[in-house]
Design a protein around this nucleic acid. Structure first.
Length: 590
RNA sequence: GGUCCACUAGCUCAACUGGAUAGAGCAGCUGCCUUCUAAGCAGCAGGUUUCAGGUUCGAGCCCUGAGUGGAUCACCA
């Protein structure tokens, strides 16, 4: 049993037996003792002062005496104000380390928990991925891993927005100006090529609009009447009617984009178990809406459009089908949810990784799903994250301030290479292995940089800082792991020792290592990878202090040496596992 | 205008969900490599937690009001 829990139970017992004061064990507040005070764990006793009718110090001493007698692991205590600081024995700590090191489940995934579907990425198929997608993908992927580790079965999924006007724009521009250009002939990635035509369309359209405005039309009229707009609408219509030539073009250009995306995803280290194509699920949305209409969950307006009334839930009315019977965004999301229920009958939850500008949309979606009677609807979550800002402000494709995902990844890897070569520690490493290491460090730095911030918060992207390998960064954690490994390579066979006394650094490190499961479960519950990142940093800092202050291989006492080696081994494993949950690999040497 | 969300050191972020003297990193200054990896460690400096009230043993965190910034309130996705 966890020692803090043991102390909590003992505390509750004492309060009940001696003072007739009933406290739930989970309500007993026990924290790690702050480092400026003597002790390992601290019981906060302010809440019991009234019941005990004592002053803080008096109550602390009374409780401390009884805990000392009741819990054998406790060796000593001190009281400061309303805080009872408990010191645990060296025997307890070494036994704890030995037990965790031998526990084969400690660093392995749990088993309980239902089937969760995590959706992320979901880009439009008309332009390449950018910095915003990186945050989205890293978050979604990491949350999948964390949920899985906590015991859930997880299906990683994305919905591909392969339908609608935006892709038609690229298609049209390619048809008009492409001269049969392909990714191979142009020598660029497919997503980049399609993006190029999307931009081209936009430029031509703007020129046409400008001309019309000069001729006296309003901005809005001009946009509608521009020849290109009409051609795009025409093309969309043809697509919906299944015109073979249009469909073929659509297939080809989407194919280019997918190939490009796949290359980007591969480098990012993210993957998907299941894809949903919007071009396939939007029709299902229509069907579901019709069913809901029959059940009286939705209603029809005079023009024939279909709505849902959410006024009773404090929201407004929301359109689900246009008067002409075509679908909207919400309809498609309903259809996709229904499709998923069919694909996975045991589905318990869907987690949607989507920017916080869509908070309202998901509030509405979840309400509708609940009204439609999906029993897993209340468990659905919107993993809502804030936008990534640049020092120059918001990213805007119009102004060319978008940070391209491929470019950025190439940059961070290059930066990792440069700094590594400056340090010159890798001379003995094979060329190929070096390449892998730079990749690991660069991408690791980028992922860590984007994941260490609370997902819900908007964050600032500083290009300089993102490639930095010093300070609170991924490579700092990776370095610490490599450092542990270096020690372990030099060590002979060892057994976890049981020293007679422990130093402060050893206790701190071990206490942090023992926090592992609690931290991971919390991160899973909150869908918050930043909690894992913070944990990695804490652990790495503590290990480095420990490493710096105390000899490991050169410890004189064999018990001490064994203990410190065991600490080193567990630290390496814990760091590797934790970083793994962020989707970051750690090297053996660097 | 309605609703929602932010605001913490020069900058970027923490703070175990109400606990001790609010912590890290970066940037600045200063030390430590003939001892297990210096991508490290240690130190100095940096704060009225946007402001004004309130709740209580105790508030960065809860409540009220104000300020600043952002999102959203589409028959776009």
């Amino acid at each position: 049993m966890d020692i803090t829990q043991k102390i909590a139970i003992a505390t509750a017992d004492i309060l009940k037996e001696s003072y007739d004061h009933v406290v739930e064990t989970h309500a007993v507040q026990i924290d790690a003792t702050r480092k400026e005070f003597e002790g390992d764990y601290t019981v906060v006793i302010f809440p019991y002062l009234r019941a005990l009718k004592m002053k803080p110090e008096e109550a602390g001493n009374a409780l401390g005496d009884q805990l000392l007698a009741a819990v054998p692991e406790i060796e000593a205590f001190n009281v400061i104000k309303g805080f009872l600081n408990l010191s645990l024995s060296a025997a307890y700590w070494s036994a704890a380390l030995a037990s965790i090191s031998a526990d084969e489940h400690w660093l392995k995934r749990g088993k309980s928990g239902g089937l969760s579907l995590v959706e992320y990425s979901s880009p439009n198929t008309n332009k390449p991925l950018h910095l915003g997608h990186l945050r989205n993908n890293f978050l979604g992927h990491s949350v999948s891993l964390i949920k899985e580790f906590a015991g859930n079965e997880v299906i990683k999924t994305q919905i591909i927005n392969d339908r609608g006007v935006h892709i038609c724009k690229s298609m049209l521009a390619w048809k008009m100006h492409g001269k049969g250009e392909t990714p191979t002939s142009a020598g660029i990635k497919g997503d980049k090529l399609v993006g190029k035509y999307y931009v081209m369309y936009d430029e031509h359209l703007r020129a046409q609009v400008k001309k019309l405005v000069v001729e006296g039309r309003s901005e809005e009229e001009a946009k509608k009447e521009a020849p290109l707009s009409k051609m795009v609408q025409d093309m969309l219509l043809k697509w919906e009617q299944g015109d073979p030539e249009t469909i073929a073009l659509w297939r080809m250009m989407n194919g280019w984009v997918y190939e490009g995306f796949d290359a980007t995803y591969a480098r990012m280290g993210v993957s998907f178990d299941k894809l949903n194509h919007e071009s396939e699920t939007y029709l299902k949305g229509k069907d579901i809406v019709k069913v809901g209409l029959e059940k009286g969950i939705f209603f029809t307006k005079d023009d024939g459009s279909v709505w849902v009334n959410l006024e009773a839930d404090g929201l407004d009315q929301k359109l689900l089908l246009r008067a002409d019977g075509t679908t909207v965004y919400m309809t498609q999301d309903i259809g996709t949810a229904a499709q998923r229920q069919e694909d996975y009958p045991s589905l318990k939850q869907i987690i949607y990784t989507v920017g916080d500008e869509q908070d309202y949309h998901f509030k509405v979606l979840f309400l509708i799903l609940e009204k439609l009677g999906y029993d897993w609807a209340p468990a659905c979550r919107h993993l809502s994250y804030g936008m990534v800002d640049l020092p120059s402000g918001k990213m805007k494709s119009r102004e060319g301030t978008v940070v391209d995902a491929d470019d950025l990844m190439a940059e961070v890897v290059e930066a990792a290479k440069t700094s590594s070569e400056e340090k010159g520690k890798l001379d003995e490493m094979e060329q190929e292995e070096q390449g892998q290491l730079f990749e690991m460090l660069g991408i690791g730095a980028l992922k860590f940089y984007l994941l260490r911030v609370d997902p819900r918060k908007r964050m600032m992207f500083d290009p300089e800082e993102s490639v930095s390998l010093n300070g609170d960064t991924g490579p700092f954690v990776q370095y610490t792991h490599a450092r542990c490994k270096a020690v372990l390579r030099k060590a002979e066979e060892f057994q976890c020792g049981a020293p007679e006394s422990l130093s402060e650094k050893e206790r701190q490190l071990l206490r942090a290592l023992m926090q592992f499961r609690t931290v991971m479960n919390g991160a899973a519950e909150e869908m918050n990878p930043s909690a894992v990142a913070s944990y990695c940093l804490d652990l790495a800092k503590m290990y480095n202090q420990f490493y710096h202050d105390l000899p490991i291989l050169k410890a004189v006492d064999e018990e001490v040496k064994g203990f410190r080696l065991a600490l080193t081994k567990l630290t390496a494993e814990t760091l590797a596992t934790s970083m793994g949950l962020l989707g970051i690999q750690v090297p053996e040497r660097m």
